[in-house]
Design a protein around this nucleic acid. Structure first.
Lengths: 199, 199
DNA sequence: ACTACAATGATTACACTGTCAACATTCTAA
DNA sequence: TTAGAATGTTGACAGTGTAATCATTGTAGT
């Protein structure tokens, strides 16, 4: 069950990171319900109250995990961008959509937490909101270069379409068949938007 | 704090409905975290173990509340449909989108629970999945009549776009300004889809 | 109308979890 | 070198979900 720190120094050294990692593992295994502060502490090799030196409460730990998730999502989208020709705007547009969906399907529980209301009051976790905006910025750049104004609006529309598809897939609300695959629906959705943007 | 049953008959009569109602109230007030089984029981004027005669566990009560939510959502969309001219397909299309977003903004916590993973294993709550499909069916009908094939795919695309916009709005992830209103974005999104569908 | 049984509700109890207060240890800056 | 800040531990408490057992009421079949 341990995750980090098998030595027994009184001070852990990087307990905060270890807690986030352990929490992420529990999240992946059993969803939010599986994230148990005391278990997280145990996995990090530390007493059950130690986490309170790094997070004011459980929600703050979840927020830190979610922030990590947004960073991973941004990385995934950046990698996708880098894998297509830098002047092919439509290819970049598609690559980001697929990367977003791919991330969601690969990290369902994490994805849920990232959009579980933690950013509603932005002052609660300022860095979380900042992290969440980075992936938005990536898409914004591609749309600006490929489709033009109104960039902001088109970015919101695209983000919504992909995000909604991702979440409905996570809900198992979209029946998949041989001719209705995830990739097919992503392509169809993005193509509809491209056409709708007049592109 | 009471919600129902001030008389003190041993048998409540419609405890199940009372519990759902009380749970919904707590959900609206304090989100999922505010839904406390014992408090729900107290609100219904019943002992803290009585709910277990109607729901195997807390999750099942939440599912029942969510099911009620899907019914309300369907009603809202049906009402919206009835409020526009029955032969104006695009108007129906728009009306349903606005109704969906309106419902989400009016019932944020409920909306979250409706899409909190309860339908992932459909066998867990069969009637919940059924209820969730009704609103989908409404949109399907409108799209079939207005835009034609591929109907199923276009319904998924539209549903995703609207659902994603709704959830991102609930997350406070979409900054609103004087010229970027909710209704404006809904219209822009739907117009993009209409154009993308070749309509 | 009577009676067994099903349905529903109450009491009691338990384990788990988040959180706080008080105390211990270690690190660091003056 | 040492005082105070950081960090970690121990112990305790209240709240919550849930199971076991018992109590009451409704109802179907005679």
């Amino acid at each position: 069950m341990d995750t980090v720190k098998d030595g027994k120094a009184y001070h852990h050294g990087q307990l905060r990171e270890a807690l986030i990692l352990a929490g992420l593992q529990l999240l992946n295994e059993g969803g939010v319900a599986g994230v148990d502060l005391r278990k997280v502490a145990r996995m990090a090799g530390v007493s059950h109250a130690a986490p309170y030196r790094h997070f004011p409460d459980k929600r703050a730990l979840i927020a830190a995990i979610a922030e990590q998730g947004f960073a991973s999502l941004t990385t995934a989208m950046r990698d996708a961008l880098a894998s297509v020709h830098p002047t092919d705007g439509r290819a970049q547009f598609r690559a980001m959509g697929h990367a977003y969906i791919g991330f969601a399907l690969a990290n369902p529980a994490l994805m849920r937490e990232m959009f579980s209301g933690l950013t509603v009051d932005r002052a609660d976790f300022p860095s979380l909101y900042t992290a969440s905006k980075e992936s938005f910025g990536l898409l914004y750049g591609t749309i600006a270069q490929t489709f033009g104004e109104p960039v902001e609006l088109r970015t919101v529309i695209t983000f919504s379409a992909i995000h909604g598809l991702a979440l409905l897939l996570l809900e198992n609300q979209i029946p998949l068949t041989a001719d209705k695959t995830v990739d097919g629906m992503v392509d169809a959705s993005l193509d509809t938007l491209i056409r709708g943007f007049g592109g």
